Amino acid sequence: MSQTKPLPTTVQRWAEQRTGPVVLARDASHDWHRSRVWELAGEGGARWYVKASPSAKFFARETRAYRHVVPTLGHSRAPQLLDSRAKDLALLLTVAPGAPAPGLGLSSAAWRAVHAQAGMLCARLHEAGELDRGDRAEAEGFLGAAADGAEKYLGRAGDRLTGGEQQLVRDYAAQLRRVGPVPLGYIHGDNQLLH
């Protein structure tokens, strides 16, 4: 587990301009060195999250997504952006209703329903509308970037893959370079189960 990251005082003061007094700020970061997320509790039990993006690029991408794409998911299906602060790469978000599925002890049928709902929400993201110029340029380069990254991931896999499995990955990477134009849409860049 990573070390607890305290919420910077300047960020808390900024958040309090929108939320009112914060009585508790708890590190809610994922176990990843660049994750910086805090759960804020206000008087009367109100809760919010502050997320500090790892880079200006991610901050711009997430801010744009929360402003223009997330609302297409429908009310209460995702956190809503209350404010953003470029100086600290910080986003102030509402708390989405519900609880993380991994901690609920769900049956196989319930897990299928969770995955079906996640798939439906991802489909809504894909159909959220035309990409702006910057998003379009990034999306058009994605297949090439994925192909270029294959060797990096093969290096990380090391001897866990056989020679045949490594060649299969290289063959698929080569196919990505030849796919040609594909329909473009928004995607969720971190769609995974949380522990």
Score class of each variant (00 low, 15 high):
residue 93 L to W: 00
residue 142 F to M: 08
residue 23 V to W: 02
residue 56 A to P: 05
residue 116 A to P: 05
residue 135 D to P: 03
residue 5 K to L: 11
residue 144 G to M: 00
residue 148 D to I: 00
residue 35 S to P: 07
residue 62 E to W: 04
residue 74 G to P: 10
residue 151 E to K: 00
residue 151 E to G: 05
residue 194 L to M: 11
residue 29 S to T: 01
residue 51 K to D: 03
residue 24 L to T: 13
residue 83 D to N: 03
residue 52 A to Y: 00
residue 63 T to G: 00
residue 33 H to A: 13
residue 45 G to D: 02
residue 77 R to A: 14
residue 68 H to C: 02
residue 143 L to T: 02
residue 92 L to C: 02
residue 138 E to Y: 12
residue 150 A to E: 12
residue 159 D to G: 08
residue 55 S to H: 07
residue 20 G to S: 12
residue 14 W to N: 05
residue 41 A to E: 14
residue 103 G to L: 15
residue 44 G to M: 03
residue 135 D to A: 14
residue 112 R to P: 00
residue 147 A to L: 00
residue 97 P to I: 10
residue 96 A to T: 09
residue 109 A to G: 10
residue 82 L to A: 05
residue 125 L to M: 14
residue 165 E to V: 02
residue 189 G to K: 08
residue 158 G to T: 15
residue 49 Y to T: 05
residue 176 L to R: 06
residue 86 A to R: 08
residue 97 P to C: 10
residue 81 L to A: 09
residue 101 A to C: 12
residue 19 T to M: 08
residue 79 P to A: 15
residue 20 G to C: 11
residue 39 E to Y: 06
residue 10 T to R: 08
residue 57 K to R: 14
residue 1 M to Q: 01
residue 156 R to K: 15
residue 127 E to Y: 08
residue 135 D to R: 09
residue 65 A to C: 03
residue 95 V to Y: 03
residue 19 T to D: 03
residue 102 P to H: 06
residue 120 M to R: 09
residue 9 T to C: 01
residue 46 A to V: 13
residue 59 F to Q: 03
residue 185 G to E: 12
residue 178 R to Q: 13
residue 151 E to L: 07
residue 193 L to M: 09
residue 28 A to T: 12
residue 173 A to G: 10
residue 75 H to S: 14
residue 152 K to T: 04
residue 86 A to W: 03
residue 53 S to E: 12
residue 23 V to L: 07
residue 75 H to A: 15
residue 95 V to S: 14
residue 24 L to S: 15
residue 129 G to H: 06
residue 159 D to N: 09
residue 153 Y to K: 00
residue 13 R to D: 04
residue 8 P to W: 07
residue 160 R to G: 15
residue 120 M to C: 04
residue 80 Q to A: 11
residue 123 A to D: 09
residue 50 V to R: 09
residue 28 A to Y: 13
residue 114 V to M: 06
residue 161 L to I: 07
residue 28 A to Q: 14
residue 154 L to S: 09
residue 7 L to P: 02
residue 32 W to R: 11
residue 37 V to P: 02
residue 188 H to L: 06
residue 184 L to T: 04
residue 186 Y to M: 13
residue 16 E to K: 00
residue 175 Q to D: 15
residue 46 A to Y: 04
residue 131 L to W: 13
residue 45 G to Q: 08
residue 86 A to M: 01
residue 167 Q to C: 05
residue 161 L to P: 15
residue 133 R to G: 01
residue 132 D to H: 05
residue 186 Y to C: 06
residue 37 V to A: 06
residue 51 K to E: 10
residue 188 H to Y: 11
residue 144 G to T: 01
